[in-house]
Amino acid sequence: MSALPLLLDDVLLRPDIWRGDRLAGLDAESVSSSFAQLDAELPGAGWPRGALVELLADARGMGEVSMLLPALQQCTADALPVAIVAPPGMAHAPAWAAHFPLKQVLVVEAPRDDIAWSVELLLASGALGAVLAWLPAKIGNKSLRRLQLAAEGSRSLAFMFRPLSCMQTASPAPLRLSLRGHQQGLQVDIFKRRGPPCEKTLLLQVARPLPWSRVRSDQPPMRRPQLEVVESKPRQRVV
């Protein structure tokens, strides 16, 4: 059998194949998050375009949107609008106006059953710079896969907010982060990425109405929560 002279290095150039100890390259471009410590841990050194980014958070107001502001501002600077789908509160125009031209912000108040459909439509349109969506807790894997496919066909940034409880379930999103509030910054754990597992817990000094130093912190930095490993017991055979 004559084997093709296929070099390992050639194989490794493919964006969907990477060595276990390195971060994968991206076939699409990325947008810098403008946090150096976060960029260092993200494949492609920034938020990937054309891929779902899952942000898992339970509380509101920890800076989960502020963390994305630099990337979103880059979109609106390129005259690409940003869509907010099913926001967790009433969008307050004066706050958004401080960061974006309001013309570039589109609010879509979809009922729970139509959120996935709306996001898919927005991603597939290719007319948006970024889509921020608050997905319902019980979204099926099939819907997520459809969203990932829609994202792959576009150049949009796709940030999907989901509750922390979704950490245990698998998802087709190539990048998944969990966000927790802390009195010294926003605590970010990357628990799925194309590359080696991320051991570090990042504490991002996201933009707040006041400097972080104004908050008196009485807590130690939180420890990274360990993923529970649920072992399936071998089923006993009934004789």
């Binding site: 912000v105 589109l106 979809a110 139509d114 007319a127």
Partner: peptide, 22 residues
């Protein structure tokens, strides 16, 4: 973006899709 907006509106209602103004 207009074709997307009108499709969203056809399903979700006119008020559901909008921009903001101070």
């Amino acid at each position: 973006l207009d074709p997307v907006i009108e499709r969203l509106r056809a399903r979700l209602g006119k008020q559901a899709v909008h921009a903001m103004q101070i």
